[in-house]
């Protein structure tokens, strides 16, 4: 049986033969999926949203975005809002003030090392039953964004800074 399976398991041609076939299969599948979705527990929905967040963070690291968006805080908001009814409850759980959390989420204050330690440990606990979550992921996203911002924003900072930089002991031909 295994041998037979291995001999045909080299590939799948799963293309619909006609629009009629596609529409008919789609309708049936949609009905069945809606029923199954109604039976999803709150925990299963939450796990899917947290997995989505993790995959988006990993994707951001692999596909740098050179734009003005605040990726770290957007991801952090999604994380907190997936888990808590009130953001202040998250602040309480990682032992910081709601005011500090609000400033970080709204980009009025940079997160410090201590904040990352707490976020790292919180995420480890949350993802324990969902899937692997790299310890370094939050910090990587944060610094990755800094690099992207610096490179994206060169037209703004470079003209002024270049005037301040000299190579007094070097001869450049």
């Amino acid at each position: 049986m295994t041998s037979t399976k291995n001999n045909i398991d080299f590939g799948i041609d799963s293309r619909y033969r006609s629009k009629t076939e596609k529409d008919s299969e789609s309708n049936q599948l949609m009905k069945a999926r809606l029923k199954r979705q109604q039976n999803l527990s709150k925990e299963q929905i939450n796990n899917a949203r947290l997995m989505q967040l993790k995959l988006r963070m990993e994707d951001y690291l692999q596909n740098p975005a050179y734009d003005a968006k605040n990726y770290f805080t957007q991801f952090l908001k999604q994380y907190v809002d997936s888990l808590y009814s009130k953001r202040s409850n998250f602040a309480h759980d990682i032992n910081i003030t709601p005011n500090l959390l609000s400033k970080i989420l709204n980009n009025y204050r940079e997160p410090n090392q201590e904040f990352f330690y707490r976020l790292m440990i919180h995420s480890e606990k949350v993802f324990q039953h969902i899937g692997e979550f790299q310890k370094k992921l939050w910090i990587q996203v944060y610094y990755h964004e800094k690099i992207c911002d610096t490179m994206f924003d060169q037209n703004n900072w470079r003209p002024k800074i270049e005037k301040q930089i000299k190579l007094s002991e070097l001869t450049i031909k």
């Binding site: 069945a32 999926r33 979705q37 999803l40 299963q44 796990n47 997995m51 969902i130 899937g131």
Partner: peptide
């Protein structure tokens, strides 16, 4: 479902 196999939450995770 019909001829279609599908993978959804939670199995997809």
């Amino acid at each position: 479902t019909g001829k279609t196999l599908s993978l959804e939450v939670p199995e997809i995770l």
